[in-house]
Amino acid sequence: MKARVTVTLKTSVLDPQGKAIEGSLRSLGFDGVESVRQGKVFDLEVAGEDKAKAEADIKAMCEKLLANTVIESYRVEIAG
């Protein structure tokens, strides 16, 4: 089973890399860009067919390692 975890900085945390990318996009002429937040994507393949169990396991992975919940939030999507 395939799953995707998206980790982003919490909205209360400043994202200087996102700001730099935002400035660069504007300098390329993309005037409509209002804000950019950078994040990370993890594509996982997990054994088994039990979606609920996979989701629970992946949430535990996020809490323990994939995200630092002091500064980041995460989203888990199970494919199919």
Binding site: V13, L14, P16, Q17, A20, N68, V70, I71
Partner: peptide, 9 residues
């Protein structure tokens, strides 16, 4: 707390 990328990158 946490330690983030330096604000000036």
């Amino acid at each position: 707390g946490a330690l983030l990328r330096n604000s000036h990158l």
